[in-house]
């Protein structure tokens, strides 16, 4: 079922510093509340978003990228869609990156697989040197 915008406008947050990470979490909270998500779902969405925004700071060229948050709907469901994009080096092996414990920075490697568990839908696309885009959706129950 196709996802449509429930509202024409999106909230866009630059992701280029630690302060932006806080701003990204606050924006996700506000939009999750607006979509009527329950407290646990809000918390899951924000936490996943924090992981994905942090990945931009860690891996993207110039440590910069963007978060775009939208109110969406699909048939009778409403929810929040968050898109994290950067123009960094991309992810070489997507399957590996989605595996628990895989990290190229000696970290725990749970940002991507953990985020996927926290949301209803997640797609990662990476076209080599043209960067990485991660889209997550959380629906209101």
């Amino acid at each position: 079922m196709a996802i449509e915008l429930a509202e024409p406008t999106a909230v866009v947050v630059a992701v280029a510093s630690e302060a932006d990470l806080v701003h990204a979490r606050q924006t996700l909270r506000a939009e999750a509340v607006r979509a009527g998500l329950g407290l646990v779902d809000q918390t899951k969405l924000i936490t996943a978003g924090s992981e994905l925004a942090r990945n931009i700071l860690t891996y993207a060229t110039g440590s910069r990228g963007e978060l775009r948050v939208e109110q969406v709907r699909s048939r009778e469901r409403v929810g929040v869609r968050a898109t994290f994009s950067d123009e960094g080096p991309g992810i070489e092996d997507l399957d590996a990156a989605m595996t628990d414990g895989f990290s190229t920075s000696g970290s725990l490697g749970l940002g991507l697989p953990g985020s996927k568990r926290l949301v209803d839908e997640m797609t990662v696309s990476s076209a080599g040197a043209s960067g990485t885009t991660v889209v997550i959706v959380k629906w209101r129950r």
């Binding site: 646990v40 918390t43 926290l118």
Partner: peptide
Amino acid sequence: IQPAVAVTLVELGV
């Protein structure tokens, strides 16, 4: 630890 935070951390896998 808030319940919503506990649920989230377990699912995240920390």
